[in-house]
């Protein structure tokens, strides 16, 4: 993520979160935060605790963020922000919280004969799978289920992210009723992701277990012939388990309901 992308990201983020951008030079922007965003990205819980318990007037921060320091003479004019910096990570985290659930309708042109267009409901869930041992690998799956016929589609996000969508249905449309209730749809998607995980190649886990066994043998060798093993043996053994024992985590990034033209 280069400076112009970071800048564009910030601009959209503050716009979407109703923080007023007071000035924007393309490499530096000044923004008045709302109370809600201040709490999410300024990392000052004690201040907010104090304001709330004493009932003092809140004073959310006004931030000047510099996205391209090569264009700045005086770096003390604001906070330098770039990919990897902590502030940007906090903004990423806030984005995740504030962009977790959507309900979107595809926009349709008024049909010439005056008939209403029909939209089909889908439930989309974006998953992240993490494989952990002493190393990590992650995969993303965007799955969408048609809540009328139950078909499940891959790469759902890619197929909808460029459509013309709005968060309010237009008047000229008719949404098909669910045959499958969304919470059932969610269960089906969870089953699907589970089976994707189970059918994946898990040689990584086998290899991690082999590394684990090898290191366990080395450790045992150190204490060979010691009748009563000291505490440090158990500590080491536990550390090996924590380091090598393969684990899988399935997280939901975000998801929502989509009403789309068939």
């Amino acid at each position: 993520m280069f400076a112009p992308q970071v800048h564009e990201y910030l601009r959209t983020f503050f716009h979407e979160t109703n923080c007023e951008i007071e000035s924007d030079e393309g490499y530096m922007l000044t923004v008045q935060l709302t109370i809600d965003i201040d709490k999410k990205i300024m990392n000052r819980p004690f201040y907010w605790q104090y304001i709330e318990t004493t009932g003092s007037p809140p004073n959310p921060a006004r931030l000047t963020l510099i996205t391209d320091r090569s264009k700045i003479d005086n770096p003390f004019m604001g906070e330098i922000i770039h990919f990897g910096s902590r502030r940007l990570n906090q903004i990423f985290k806030a984005t995740k919280e504030l962009g977790a659930f959507v309900q979107m309708y595809e926009k349709v042109q008024q049909a010439e004969n005056g008939n209403r267009s029909t939209l089909t409901p889908y439930l989309c869930v974006n998953y992240k799978i993490s494989y952990y041992c002493d190393q990590t690998k992650e995969k993303m799956y965007s799955l969408g289920i048609n809540l009328v016929n139950g078909n499940i589609h891959d790469d759902f996000h890619e197929s909808v992210c460029n459509l013309n969508l709005t968060n309010e249905p237009t008047e000229n449309i008719y949404c098909l009723p669910y045959i499958i209730k969304p919470h059932r749809g969610l269960e089906r998607l969870d089953e699907m992701i589970q089976s994707i995980v189970q059918n994946d190649d898990h040689s990584w886990a086998q290899e991690a277990k082999m590394r684990w066994e090898k290191e366990q043998e080395v450790l045992d060798y150190f204490y060979e012939g010691v009748e009563e093993k000291p505490e440090s043996y158990e500590i080491e053994k536990k550390a090996l388990e924590e380091r090598f024992n393969p684990r899988i985590k399935v997280e939901i990034i975000n998801g929502g309901l989509f009403y789309l033209k068939s």
């Binding site: 959209t12 983020f13 979407e16 504030l98 962009g99 977790a100 959507v102 996000h157 975000n254």
Partner: peptide, 15 residues
């Protein structure tokens, strides 16, 4: 319901 822009941004950041 959340903002569609933030939803898309969140997905892109994860990716």
């Amino acid at each position: 319901w959340d903002s569609w822009s933030l939803y898309k941004m969140s997905y892109e950041i994860e990716k």
